[in-house]
Design a binder for these strands. Structure first.
Lengths: 110, 110
DNA sequence: TTTGGATACATAGGCTATCTGTGCATAGAT
DNA sequence: ATCTATGCACAGATAGCCTATGTATCCAAA
């Protein structure tokens, strides 16, 4: 078992893409914070999960990334959802809901 | 990505235990068929997933297993949920719902 | 009558995705 | 001064399901 499988395998990309869709372009750290807050502190995306995920969806063309100044001597990378990313998000959302509702049918009754 | 992550990682034990709780003792093949039907053909538990899962939860004491005759020359193993298994099921159900509702909060809004 | 599909169990090995641990670096608070 | 937060990134470990394979019985269709 995962020690604390806060992020169910297979859902991370969806959560990241959805967050960018909701709140617009933001940097990686902001995405993690946003997911944590929106989920009421349940979904804690570790950095070791977040950045590989961002690299992955960047390579797939679902987001673009721009370096911006985040202070006098600091840099941050702002991620922007692409049209492809939006399509991917929609696909992942409907697949997630399809499976989630199937699980509900199995576990619903007392 | 999983090719077809029909069974989200981490949910298999819960689905098996729940099925035994709902329909009473049954053999492995029956569990898989029941999950498939209850989920409207969405959750297809492969045999290579099912039997290792049953072995695992058997070793953990969540079920007991009895060999019975399934025909003149056939044998089948009937699994029976234990009290420990019932407790484990309740724990997994509440954890699943906790995380699932957190995900809903993130993906819910348009 | 023979072929295929469903029933029924089980294991070995591979794959995928997340997490842990680590590293670098700046900024603000205690 | 030290801790926490911000901010990026990678390597390796771990966990869990799937594919492929093997054995064996039963029944229906061609």
């Amino acid at each position: 078992m995962y020690p604390k499988p806060e992020i169910p395998p297979g859902t991370l990309d969806m959560l990241v893409l959805k967050t960018l869709a909701r709140f617009g372009p933001m940097h990686g750290y902001g995405v993690a914070k946003s997911i944590l807050q929106t989920s009421d502190d349940v979904l804690r995306v570790e950095e070791g999960s977040l950045y590989p995920a961002l690299q992955r969806i960047l390579r797939k063309g679902w987001v673009t990334a721009d370096w911006v100044a985040a202070g006098p001597k600091r840099r941050a990378r702002v991620y922007h959802l692409t049209r492809e990313g939006r399509k991917q998000l929609d696909a992942e959302l409907s697949e997630y809901r399809r499976v989630a509702s199937a699980i509900e049918r199995v576990i619903q009754p007392a």
